[in-house]
Amino acid sequence: MPTTQLYDTIGAGYPATRRTDPRIARPIWTALGDARTVVNVGAGTGSYEPADRAVVAVEPSALMRSNRPAGAAPCVGATAERLPFADGAFDAAMAVCTLHHWSDPEAGLRELRRVARRVVVFAFDTREADHFWLTRDYLPELHDLPGVRTLDRLTDLAADVLDAEVRPVPVPGDCADGLYEAYWRRPEAYLDARVRRAISVWGAVGPDVEQRAVERLRADLDSGAWHERNGHLLELDELDLGARLLVA
Rank of each mutant, 00 (worst) to 15 (best):
M1G: 13
T4Y: 07
T4N: 11
Q5S: 13
L6S: 07
G11K: 04
R18G: 04
T20C: 05
D21K: 10
P22Q: 01
P22W: 10
R23P: 00
L32H: 03
G33H: 07
G33N: 09
G33S: 05
V38F: 01
G42S: 11
G44Q: 10
G46S: 02
S47P: 12
V55R: 00
V55F: 02
V55G: 00
E59L: 00
L63A: 01
P69T: 01
A70E: 04
A72P: 00
C75G: 00
V76D: 04
P84S: 09
F85K: 01
A86E: 11
A86T: 08
A89G: 06
D91Q: 04
D91H: 02
A93N: 14
A93R: 11
V96P: 09
T98H: 12
T98C: 15
H100D: 14
S103L: 08
P105W: 13
G108D: 06
R118H: 14
F122T: 01
A123I: 04
F124W: 04
F124P: 00
D125F: 13
T126E: 13
R127Y: 02
E128H: 14
D130S: 12
E141T: 11
L142Q: 15
D144G: 05
P146N: 08
G147M: 10
G147Y: 12
R149Q: 15
T150M: 05
D152Y: 13
D152E: 13
D152M: 07
L154D: 06
D156F: 09
A159F: 08
D160C: 10
V161N: 12
L162M: 03
D163E: 14
R167I: 13
V171L: 07
G173H: 14
C175P: 13
G178F: 07
Y180T: 13
Y183V: 05
Y183R: 13
E188V: 08
A189E: 15
A189W: 10
Y190W: 12
Y190A: 07
L191V: 02
R197Y: 07
A198T: 06
A198V: 10
G206Q: 03
D208G: 00
R212L: 04
A213C: 14
A213P: 14
V214H: 08
L221A: 04
L221I: 06
D222I: 05
S223K: 02
A225P: 05
R229V: 08
N230C: 15
G231N: 05
L234P: 15
L234R: 15
E235A: 11
D237C: 03
L239T: 09
R244H: 10
L245N: 06
L246M: 06
V247E: 07
